[in-house]
């Protein structure tokens, strides 16, 4: 039976006076690969912040893995690769291994240090993203695409059931974007659910198993093929401005 791992029911959120989300109903099932698209300021990042517990909804209910979000303590089940992950200070003296190790911080808890088992786990995560040769390199010396992989490894190391990626392909060249999606598909096949936020609708409909379109409210949530058959006008309505949709042929 397919279990929902995220359930949002009538969730609204305000930044002061300004409404960012209005009555959003959103479900992520186990094994989903969901592309979340929508215009800038449409509330994509807010939705992620709510899921991660960085903000509390003004109204509505959020459940994670069948538990109300207030009671949800297993933060390591959620992996998060932030949009800002790439904007760290590139001179920061941290090796790839050290960066990936950071992903275990919450799982270990305070005062605990790494065991040999944890070390093996770190190497596995780095191997999954194909960066084993770079373990002892400084993160700042890698290319944007390679850094992105390392940040995914960091999110993977705590064995998340849901991986949330916020605009992960910004600043990554086309060839590496393809490789990046190959990696995401592999992870998805290993039963990691994915929520990928992007404004690139074309790639999204090509790769994701479901698409959700968010502009304050959730306008569409379902099969990408259906999403593509929506009329251009309707899509432009969602976005609030005319839209040029680039479709990718197989």
């Amino acid at each position: 039976m397919i279990k929902p791992i995220v359930e949002m029911e009538n969730v609204s959120f305000h930044y002061g006076e300004r409404q960012a989300l209005s009555k959003v109903n959103f479900i992520i099932n186990e094994g989903d690969f969901i592309g979340l698209v929508g215009p800038n300021g449409g509330g994509k990042t807010t939705l992620i912040k709510l899921l991660l517990g960085m903000e509390k909804p003004t109204a509505g209910k959020i459940e994670l893995f069948g538990q109300p979000i207030r009671k949800f303590k297993e933060k390591s089940k959620l992996g998060y690769v932030s949009q800002k992950a790439n904007s760290f200070n590139s001179g920061f003296p941290a090796t790839v291994e050290e960066v990936v190790t950071m992903g275990l911080t919450s799982k270990l808890g305070y005062f605990r240090r790494l065991t040999r088992q944890d070390k093996l786990h770190i190497y596995e995560a780095v191997e999954k993203v194909g960066m084993t040769d770079y373990l002892s390199e400084n993160i700042g010396e890698l290319s944007g695409g390679q850094q992105q992989r390392i940040f995914i490894a960091r999110a993977l190391v705590s064995d998340p059931k849901l991986l949330i990626l916020d605009e992960p392909t910004v600043g990554v060249d086309a060839e590496n974007v393809e490789k990046f999606f190959d990696l995401l598909h592999e992870l998805n096949q290993q039963n990691i659910s994915l929520l990928l936020v992007t404004h690139d609708i074309g790639t999204m409909t090509h790769h994701a198993s479901k698409v959700a379109c968010l502009n304050k409210t959730l306008h569409f949530h379902g099969n990408p093929n259906e999403f593509q058959t929506l009329s251009k006008d309707k899509l432009s309505d969602f976005y609030g401005h005319p839209l040029h949709l680039v479709t990718h042929e197989h």
């Binding site: 960085m54 933060k75 932030s82 800002k84 941290a94 960066v99 950071m102 911080t105 270990l108 005062f111």
Partner: peptide
């Protein structure tokens, strides 16, 4: 004892907060 928390906080404050630090 707080090495990993201090390190994460120095590298990436947002991630540290998400992690529950």
């Amino acid at each position: 004892f707080l090495y990993k928390e201090l390190f994460l906080l120095s590298f990436d404050e947002e991630q540290a907060v998400v992690t529950g630090i």
